Amino acid sequence: MTEAHVVVYCDMCGDVYTENTGESICFDTVAQAVDYIQARAAGVGWIYDGDRIWCDGCIAADHCDRTGQH
């Protein structure tokens, strides 16, 4: 028997999404992972922009690049 799970990684830097335990969360489907990120992880800085998932560090770096603030 083969099982497949979905783990959330930042599309920019490759960091894995974790919570308090420091271990990744396994989801059953991509849709479930995206729903979770949109509902829960946005509070800790991760976002799904409709195409990619971004971690808080990459969001901050992108903002600095776009605004010229470092």
Rank of each mutant, 00 (worst) to 15 (best):
C26M: 05
A31M: 00
V44W: 12
I37G: 00
S24E: 14
G45I: 07
N20K: 13
E3T: 13
C10K: 09
T29C: 02
G45Q: 05
Y48W: 15
M1Y: 06
C13L: 01
E3N: 08
D15N: 08
G22S: 03
Q69T: 08
D35Q: 10
T18P: 01
G50Q: 03
D49C: 11
I47H: 12
A4V: 12
D15K: 14
R40V: 14
C64L: 06
V7A: 04
V6M: 05
T29F: 00
S24C: 06
I53D: 02
D51E: 15
D11L: 06
Q69S: 09
T21E: 07
T67C: 00
D35P: 01
G14P: 02
D65M: 09
A4I: 11
H5W: 09
A33Y: 02
T2K: 13
D51F: 11
V34E: 09
G57H: 13
T18I: 11
A33T: 02
Q38W: 04
G50L: 03
C10Q: 07
V6E: 03
I53S: 05
N20Y: 15
E23P: 00
D11H: 11
Y48H: 14
I47M: 14
M1H: 10
T21Y: 02
H63T: 01
R52W: 14
T18F: 01
V7T: 11
V6L: 00
V8W: 04
D28Y: 07
V6W: 08
D65V: 02
I37T: 14
D15L: 10
V34I: 15
G22E: 07
V16M: 11
Y36E: 10
H5M: 04
A41M: 05
I59A: 09
V30G: 00
T29E: 00
A4R: 12
D49G: 10
C55K: 08
V30I: 10
I59D: 09
A61M: 15
Y36R: 04
C10V: 06
C64S: 10
Y36T: 10
V34G: 01
Y9K: 15
Q32P: 00
Y9F: 10
A42C: 15
C10L: 06
T29M: 03
I37P: 06
E23H: 11
